[in-house]
Amino acid sequence: MKRTHLPLNALRVFDAAARHLSFTRAADELAVTPAAVGQQIRALEDHLGTVLFRRTSRGLELTGEGAAGLDALREGFLKFEESVQAMQAGQASDRYTIAAPREFYAQWLAPRLADFRKENPTIQIHVVEDEYADFTEANLDFAIRLVDGPGDLEGVALGEARKVIVARHDAPDDWIGWTAANLPDDVRPAIEVATAGQALSSAMAGLGRTVLPLMLAESALAKNELAAVEGPMDARRAYWLLAPLPQWRQKKVRALADWLTRADET
């Protein structure tokens, strides 16, 4: 069934004017001018085809038609408020759904989420492997992507855009290539893989050397599982924490984003 267009702003003005029986006091409540209140009331009367107020010697009065719709209108506004509260309930939710590359989750994100849960033991975390999953379909709070900027989304970089050439101490001089690796121009890789995570696994298996985002390689370097052959050096891409703008208005989203960016600074 086609819904009737509701002039919600004018109805809100009507509610305020009906409670105060004064355009001036209604204007004060709504932070507009009395003239704006009068304009909205006239527009609403034109829309409804009826008169809502009359002026008498005692001041402003509701007409019978205006009074007849007032209780239902106020009940409707209460329902609107309940609806908004229900939609905002997700902001207070303790459940996070995060999309992240598998190896980045294992090497960098998981330890920091563990620390976050120590401070917030009631939260639940659901991790989606495909960092390019649709936000709406996957009901994502965040996605972490290796990109050169946020693009159409809003986001924060989880660390500096830095890269490093790594290999195991006993690895051959063969190169491991992957999408967006940006290997030196004179290099022909002996092994081609699809992702930075697969390149990391290949290097840790001793298959050769590769270029990795520093954040992805940090843990392996710290444990001497890999050695830095060259670098770190500046890079074009970094790991970004991304979400559509409305997501960033949620307290839970801001809380985790603040934690992850602070954790990277310490």
Rank of each mutant, 00 (worst) to 15 (best):
L183Y: 07
S201D: 13
V187F: 06
A114P: 04
E225Q: 15
H47A: 12
G159H: 00
G177I: 12
R95Y: 07
Q39C: 05
R254I: 09
N139Q: 15
L245D: 11
V193W: 05
G38L: 02
G206D: 00
F80Y: 11
D186R: 10
A106D: 09
G66R: 00
A67W: 03
E103N: 08
A181R: 12
G177H: 12
A167P: 02
L78Y: 02
R262E: 11
H126Q: 14
A199C: 11
A161M: 09
V84D: 04
A43R: 13
A110D: 11
E265F: 10
A157I: 01
W248Y: 12
Q88F: 04
A10C: 02
R3T: 09
P213H: 09
L183I: 08
D264H: 13
L30E: 01
P150R: 04
E192W: 11
A143Y: 01
R249S: 14
S93Y: 06
P7A: 02
A110Y: 12
T179S: 13
P232R: 06
R236S: 13
G177W: 12
E230K: 15
A263H: 08
Y105G: 06
T24C: 05
E218Y: 06
L158D: 00
F14K: 02
E154H: 08
A217D: 00
D15H: 02
R102H: 12
L113R: 04
L212T: 03
R42H: 01
R55P: 03
D134I: 08
A133I: 09
D148Q: 10
A27C: 08
S83Q: 07
A138C: 11
G90Y: 06
P244D: 08
R188H: 13
M215Q: 08
E131T: 08
A89P: 01
R209P: 00
H47D: 11
A205F: 00
R262N: 12
P246I: 06
E160W: 07
A17H: 04
A167D: 07
Q91G: 15
Q88N: 07
H126V: 13
R74M: 04
I176E: 05
D173V: 01
D152H: 14
P189F: 08
L73N: 02
L214S: 07
L48P: 09
S201A: 15
W259A: 14
D28C: 09
V51A: 12
W175C: 10
S219P: 03
M215A: 15
L140Y: 12
L256C: 10
G151E: 09
V127M: 11
P184W: 00
G59R: 11
D264N: 13
Q39Y: 03
A10E: 05
V193P: 04
R95W: 08
